[in-house]
Amino acid sequence: MAKSITQEFVKGLWDEIPPFRLVLGLCPVLAVTKSVENGLGMGVAVVFVLVCSNILVSLLRNIIPSKVRIACFIVIIATFVIVVELLMQAYTYALFLKLGIFIPLIVVNCVLLGRAEAFAYKNGVVASIADGFGIGVGFTLSLASIGALREVFGSGTFLGMSVFGPSYQPFTFMVEAPGAFVCLGLMLCMMNLAGNK
């Protein structure tokens, strides 16, 4: 446990970046990355839930009996998901409509449960915040980069601004379901290439 707070934070950005290094939480990655905006919105929601649930799990780690810990984690995560859902409904309604059922589905995102079980249950509050924030930011970055790739080629825009000009014929394959799988597969391949140098 000699690792510094910075190290806990940084590992989420490259060494353990979900969904590339830890192949967890694939569903939102595929579903909400049609555009950068959606990806970022989802990412921020996940960061919020992850940091809050990590704090609470780590505070309660001596009280929660280990036999029922998974059920406790799920209840904690679900509570924060509801908070996020209501907040988004109130302040970013357009994004809330676009993300649709994927906001309540953050509950079953394995990244959250995975971090609660693997990290927050065994570590102190400050380290857990750093871990949750790092993994969350890593998750957001991956969502945004896949979103960028798909939006630029699939609709020829970036954050709604035109990239290639009006004569560009959008490669719609990228924004549809098959494109999502292929795109993620190829990015995973790139990560492997870069990591094996």
Partner: peptide, 9 residues
């Protein structure tokens, strides 16, 4: 996993 995802595509 990478080839799996491409195949799923």
């Amino acid at each position: 996993t990478a080839i799996g995802l491409v195949t799923a595509g």
